[in-house]
Amino acid sequence: MLDFTINQPNLNIVAEQLKVIAHPVRLQILQILMERGPQNVTSLYEGLGLPQSTLSQHLAKMKSARIVLGNRKGLEIYYEVLDSRIKQIVSLINEQV
């Protein structure tokens, strides 16, 4: 008999991460972070032309889903992509657009 049991907690985490990145602005933020390395809110804000509060909300959602990590350097927080699976997914998406 085949065993189709799955690790439900891990699937829930992955599904939540996929929901979080399923937004054009968040995909764009991830693409920038992957191409340019760690960035602070100011550089992302200037590059994307979004209101700073909107950008901060997107980063907070990705941080809470453990997709990005924020490292404080002085007064600034620099964000980088934390999850290697997300990097692979975003790379695959970028190949298609």
Rank of each mutant, 00 (worst) to 15 (best):
M1A: 15
M1T: 10
L2K: 13
L2I: 12
D3L: 10
F4H: 12
T5Q: 13
I6N: 08
P9Q: 08
P9Y: 02
P9W: 02
L11H: 12
L11E: 12
L11N: 11
L11C: 09
N12M: 13
I13K: 12
V14C: 04
E16S: 14
L18C: 11
K19P: 00
V20F: 02
I21T: 05
I21H: 05
H23W: 02
H23N: 15
H23D: 15
P24A: 10
P24L: 09
R26W: 00
R26N: 06
L27R: 14
Q28V: 02
Q28P: 00
I29N: 05
I29H: 03
L30N: 06
L30G: 07
L30H: 03
Q31A: 12
I32W: 06
I32H: 05
I32P: 00
L33I: 02
M34V: 14
M34R: 11
E35L: 14
E35V: 09
E35A: 15
E35Y: 05
R36M: 11
G37F: 10
Q39Y: 00
N40F: 07
N40I: 08
N40E: 05
T42M: 08
S43G: 01
S43Y: 01
Y45T: 04
E46Q: 14
G47D: 12
G47C: 05
L48V: 09
L50K: 12
Q52R: 14
Q52H: 03
S53A: 13
T54N: 08
T54Q: 11
L55H: 04
L55Y: 02
L55S: 08
S56R: 13
S56A: 14
H58K: 06
H58Q: 13
H58V: 02
L59Q: 05
K61F: 13
M62W: 03
K63H: 10
K63W: 00
K63C: 07
A65W: 04
A65R: 05
A65D: 08
R66S: 15
R66V: 06
I67D: 07
I67C: 07
I67M: 08
L69G: 04
L69D: 11
G70Y: 01
G70P: 06
G70F: 02
G70I: 01
G70C: 07
N71P: 00
N71C: 04
R72H: 07
R72E: 13
R72L: 09
K73H: 09
K73P: 00
G74E: 11
G74N: 10
L75W: 03
L75K: 15
I77W: 05
I77M: 08
Y78R: 11
Y79N: 07
Y79T: 04
E80V: 06
E80P: 00
E80S: 15
E80F: 06
V81Q: 06
V81L: 10
L82D: 12
L82P: 00
D83I: 04
D83L: 13
S84E: 15
R85Q: 09
I86T: 10
K87G: 09
K87P: 00
Q88A: 15
I89L: 10
V90Y: 09
V90I: 15
V90H: 10
S91A: 15
L92H: 09
L92K: 11
L92G: 12
N94D: 03
N94Y: 04
E95C: 06
Q96Y: 10
Q96T: 09
